[in-house]
Every structure is written in structure tokens, then in C-alpha cells.
Computed example of a mutant assay.
Amino acid sequence: MGRDRSKSDLPTKVCPVCDLPFTWRKKWEKNWDEVKYCSERCRRRRSEAKE
């Protein structure tokens, strides 16, 4: 009935726009490898990224 994993056990990435770490979310389950940005706001501001 409880959670199988704690939040600290989930994979993380660093957003190239804000340089903050973000954690895996259920809605990204099918395309986690393609997720680059932590939020829609950072995705829109991607031209400011240091990539």
C-alpha cells in the first residue's frame, strides 16, 4: 500500500537553463531519456542555456 521507492531513490538530471537538479516524474515515465528541462518555463527559455 505504501510507495515502492523513496524520492531520493529516483533518477535525477540537471536542467541546462537554471542549473538546478530535477527528479523523475511519473508523467515522464515513457520519455525520460528525452527530457532535458525541469519545467515548461525553462523549456521556453532554452535559448539562454549554455549548451
Rank of each mutant, 00 (worst) to 15 (best):
W32K: 03
D19A: 13
V17R: 01
K13E: 06
K30Y: 02
E34G: 03
T12N: 13
M1C: 01
K27I: 05
K13S: 02
W28Y: 04
E34K: 14
R5D: 14
E40F: 13
C38N: 00
E34W: 05
R46L: 04
P11H: 03
S6V: 09
L10H: 14
P11K: 12
W32C: 04
R41K: 06
E48R: 12
W32A: 01
P16V: 04
R3T: 08
K50C: 09
S6H: 10
R3D: 06
S39G: 11
K13C: 08
R25Y: 15
S6R: 13
L20Q: 15
S6Y: 06
R5Q: 09
A49Y: 02
K27Q: 12
P21T: 02
E29L: 05
S8Q: 14
E48W: 04
D33Y: 05
C38F: 03
E51H: 05
K50S: 10
V35L: 08
D19R: 03
P16L: 13
W32L: 05
R41T: 06
S6G: 03
V35E: 00
G2D: 11
K13Q: 07
W24A: 00
S47R: 13
R46N: 09
R44T: 07
P11Y: 04
V14C: 11
R45G: 05
V35M: 02
K26L: 14
R44A: 07
D9V: 03
R43D: 02
R25H: 15
Y37I: 13
F22I: 03
K13N: 01
S47C: 09
V35F: 00
R41C: 13
E51W: 12
W28P: 01
T12R: 11
C18R: 06
D33T: 10
W24I: 06
K27E: 10
E29M: 06
R43F: 00
D33S: 15
E29H: 14
R25E: 05
D9K: 10
S8W: 06
K50E: 10
D9T: 03
D9H: 14
E51S: 09
P21W: 11
C15V: 08
W28F: 10
D9F: 08
C18P: 08
S6K: 15
E48I: 10
R3M: 09
D19Y: 08
D33V: 14
P16T: 11
R5W: 15
A49C: 05
P16A: 05
M1T: 01
C18I: 03
S8I: 00
A49K: 07
R25V: 04
L20G: 07
D4I: 04
N31G: 14
L20S: 08
L20T: 09
K7A: 09
P11E: 07
G2N: 06
C18F: 02
C42W: 03
S39P: 01
W32G: 04
F22W: 11
G2R: 06
G2K: 03
G2T: 05
T23N: 03
C38D: 00
W28T: 07
R45Q: 05
E40M: 14
L20D: 11
R45N: 07
R43N: 01
K26R: 13
K36L: 10
